[in-house]
């Protein structure tokens, strides 16, 4: 079980290894806080949809499984969406349409189809936690790279905390704007993938 959890973070890492769920990973990681927020939403959806699908795996008919998965996943996504709108509205506005879009995140449907439909509930929950955490860590790292280079601060939370000054005022005023624009997302993901593969190859 521990192995399932760790596999989810490293061996089956959603972004770096499986390269799925890239759309939200690129779109929302303009700051570390956004990355964490998105990651949390995905963890919640993944854990609960995995659990439910695994519990129901013996009664879900094979040829109707995809629509049933989608209904289950979208239910949890909508719950997350409403809850975020109600209790963390600034974050919800920042993530915008990418929260409802978790429904079609192939990472989640992929885990339902490829893992929890075939495994017992406790393993499926562990898998959901692992995969979700792996996703969150990468989003957090991407957000960190992009926010520090692009805005010169780290971990800023809109309306609550202005963020740690990393390089001082002078840098903040002339930061690498490219990093918070879409190309910056690709650059950050490339850096992380390269680093990850380098470590894996030389282990």
């Amino acid at each position: 079980m521990k192995q399932t959890f760790l596999d989810g973070i490293i061996k089956n890492n959603m972004v770096l290894v499986l390269a799925i769920g890239l759309c939200p990973a690129l779109a929302v990681t303009t700051s570390a806080y956004n990355g964490i927020g998105m990651g949390m939403a995905v963890i919640f959806v993944l854990v609960f949809s995995n659990l439910l699908i695994s519990l129901l795996r013996n009664i879900i008919p094979k040829n109707l499984r995809i629509p049933i998965f989608i209904v289950i996943i979208s239910t949890f996504v909508t719950i997350v969406d409403y809850t975020m709108q109600a209790y963390v509205p600034p974050l919800s506005r920042q993530l915008g349409v990418f929260v409802p879009l978790i429904v079609v995140n192939c990472g989640i449907l992929g885990r339902a189809e490829g893992y929890s439909y075939k495994h017992p509930p406790h393993y499926s929950v562990m898998d959901g936690l692992g995969i979700g955490l792996g996703f969150t860590i990468i989003l957090f790292l991407m957000g960190t790279i992009r926010e520090i280079l692009g805005q010169g601060v780290w971990l800023s939370i809109p309306g609550v905390f202005p963020g740690f000054q990393v390089f001082g005022e002078a840098f903040t005023n002339s930061s690498v704007i490219l990093m918070i624009l879409p190309p910056g997302g690709f650059l950050a993901i490339a850096l992380l993938m390269g680093l990850f593969n380098h470590i894996r190859m030389h282990k």
Partner: peptide, 9 residues
């Protein structure tokens, strides 16, 4: 049976 599962979900 299949339809009723989807219906209940």
């Amino acid at each position: 049976r299949e339809v009723s599962v989807l219906f209940i979900v």
